[in-house]
Simulated scan of single mutants.
Amino acid sequence: MNKAHLNKIAVVGGGSWATALVKILCEQPNNRVRWWLRSKADIDHIRNYHHNPRYLSDVYHSPKKVKVYGKIKEAVKAAHYVVLAVPAAFVQEPLQSLKPADLAGKRIVSAIKGMIPEANQLVTDWVEEKFSVSLSDICVIAGPCHAEEVALEKQSYLTIASTNHDCATDFAKLITCRYVTAYPLADLYGVEYAAVMKNIVALACGITHGLGYGDNFQAVMVSNAMLEIRRFVTVVDPREREMSASAYLGDLLVTAYSQFSRNRLFGNMIGRGYSVKAAQLEMKMIAEGYYATKSIHAMNEQYGVTMPITDAVYRILYEGTSPSLVMDELKLQLR
């Protein structure tokens, strides 16, 4: 095979979603993955045994297609695409040694469903600003898709959103395989904000489940949440979009209802009486919705959108208000 025809893709991150993306990308015969991980022990394990020891450990990573790195500059150097798959709260640290020149001419793909804390900034906006990457060379990956089902090769769907149709289409082709269907979409900001906010909704669903609310209430809350997301996204980025599409509603549903949803699990622990700190310590993975709640709540102080579900989750997580009291109040606002 002529190496000039190989698609070189750097994947940044060592968690379950990064591991799943490495698996998907390796299904294409011409793809080669340059995988950066933080942990030297994990790097050594993957090099020796070809499995991630901590996440989706049953997935085999072919050494012919996957090369692991501990230095991010080496990982991205020869890559055509750089896929960011670390929690938004921690994405700045692994990239701090990079300069704009290191990402020049590359397409950046955000697989992060969160916002930069404190800055209350989308990851795509941060990349554009920090590394002078043209927005036309940036796209985002949205679901509905859970890493655990990818590992089992369950039929899954991905949306690749970008302002540049060619960018989205090209990457969608690279990540389509026997069990994953990927398609392009032009709505970069709508997809990204919806992906951030569905994690907040999943937290709310987990909290109500922990409190003993049933399926009837959760169905009403998720329906109201979709309207809430629509209101916010329309104000922040007004344009025509079909919010019942799988990139929006589908991603919301799988995160709100799935047994694999870490945000739902986090919320469930809060509803059952865990403190925020205790729930964070018990979980091995990051619940993006925890940070997203604060960011979206802060942004909405400017926009003033009616967002009772986001406000309820914020009160519970950041003001220490009793979950049962907050949900008793919320149920009177839903229709």
Rank of each mutant, 00 (worst) to 15 (best):
A168P: 03
I200C: 04
A186M: 14
A151G: 11
A18M: 09
G214F: 06
R38N: 14
G105D: 05
A41D: 05
F232H: 05
L249D: 07
P117M: 05
V68K: 05
C177S: 02
D215F: 06
F171P: 01
A41N: 08
V276F: 07
C139R: 00
Y290V: 06
A111Y: 07
A89G: 08
A186Y: 13
Y248A: 00
N224K: 03
A186D: 15
I72W: 12
Y291R: 15
A204G: 09
V180R: 08
Y314E: 12
V86D: 05
G320D: 08
K130R: 10
E228F: 12
D166Q: 15
R262F: 05
E329H: 12
A245I: 09
A182R: 00
I72G: 13
I286S: 01
M327T: 01
A287I: 12
F260A: 12
V11Q: 13
V326M: 04
D125S: 14
D170A: 00
G143W: 04
K77P: 05
K198M: 09
V236P: 03
V276R: 10
I200T: 00
I24L: 10
T306G: 04
S223N: 12
E282P: 14
G250E: 02
N224H: 06
C177I: 04
G267N: 15
Y49W: 05
S244L: 10
S275R: 13
A256P: 07
